[in-house]
Design a protein around this nucleic acid. Structure first.
Lengths: 206, 206
DNA sequence: GTCTATATTTGGATAGAC
DNA sequence: GTCTATCCAAATATAGAC
């Protein structure tokens, strides 16, 4: 073994790159399958089929079905966090309304690509402890971020900053969930406008 | 058969009454089991065990597992609708804040008895068409009710009554879901107060 | 009308050939 | 490292005795 160190070194990177590509394919396939069939009916066989690998190969990359969903969720939340930070970096002292609108847009954008995946995440979170923990951490971060923002903004006049931050985060999520669950029940733009109005009136009231 | 009409008539009612009781026991058992194990792990065997009947008997009363959940949800929503109507009948011209607080309390009360059942309902709704339809109808009723109330109340100054009604209903649900999902993450009373404040400020703003 | 026992299905996961 | 073939567990639902 290792009779030719050069070929060994040469092959090492390609293999890992290929493996990483396969992982990506599996994740993409899983996202599609979960979105289409839900988690329970989104079987590992279907995922493997769509990723065009065998079921045996799939289990070489992920130890079980839950691990696939967990990584999918992790990527989704990471992307959301990054997007939010980017959006904020430009406007240190915008109006509160503009900031609230930025919040809403960031969350909506993050879910636009694959709305049904959000549904699956919501469904499965209660049953998978790792997911629960991950979601809780993510929300805690968003609340903390919002709290600081409210605390430092001069327009904000609210009695309980902590609770207000929770309320803002929840309200934004709520609208997104609603738009995802029933995309056509009410006009998205108008709902967004009214939500922003509600939040700013609440936060800036005497 | 029917050699004695009297005994036949005498037995008929008792049998149906007993059957109805058994159905109740199954429902109660299912509520408990679903709440404790979730829907997937809340097996029909466990339900039968808890209802202290055999699995075979259970299937004499309900054709399948989904039918049990459906009836459970129907009862829950019916109870909620009744409670809301009752609460409203007393106050034709209260302050908007009092009305909003009434809304919130009614929904919270309706979920207090078995919080985890709400979780199960939320999880399974996307997968069962009958459930989806039932939930949509229930929400439509609540929005319509809220719309009328907002339209007739003098304090309300909002541009889009329809969207505002959606927003109010969603916001109330949101807080309840949050309290149910993580009962201790934030003080329930304070969250309720802030929610009521948010809604009234939004609805009565210039 | 209630039970026990079991058929049936399904899907996650693994073994072992290549 | 990828495949096929299969194992195994779990859970719904049914058959048939009593």
């Amino acid at each position: 073994m290792a009779s030719d160190p050069h070929s060994l070194r040469a092959r090492k990177q390609p293999r890992q790159a290929r493996a990483e590509l396969t992982r990506q394919r599996i994740l993409a396939a899983a996202a599609h399958v979960f979105a289409e069939y839900g988690y329970a009916a989104g079987t590992t066989n279907r995922i493997a089929e769509r990723a065009r690998i065998s079921i045996g190969s799939l289990y070489q990359y992920y130890p079980n079905k839950d691990a696939i969903l967990l990584e999918l969720v992790n990527r989704h939340l990471d992307a959301g966090a990054v997007a939010l930070r980017e959006r904020q970096d430009g406007d240190p002292s915008d109006s509160l309304e503009a900031i609230m609108r930025g919040f809403v847009r960031a969350v909506i954008d993050n879910h636009l690509d694959d709305p049904k995946l959000l549904q699956v995440m919501m469904e499965q979170t209660p049953h998978a402890p790792e997911l629960t923990e991950r979601m809780a951490r993510h929300e805690w971060e968003r609340v903390a971020y919002t709290r600081e923002l409210l605390a430092s903004h001069p327009e904000v006049r609210v009695t309980d900053i902590e609770v207000a931050a929770h309320l803002v985060v929840s309200a934004v999520d709520m609208v997104v969930h609603r738009l995802v669950a029933a995309p056509l029940s009410v006009d998205a733009r108008r709902l967004e406008d009214e939500l922003v109005a509600m939040l700013t009136r609440y936060l800036t009231a005497a």
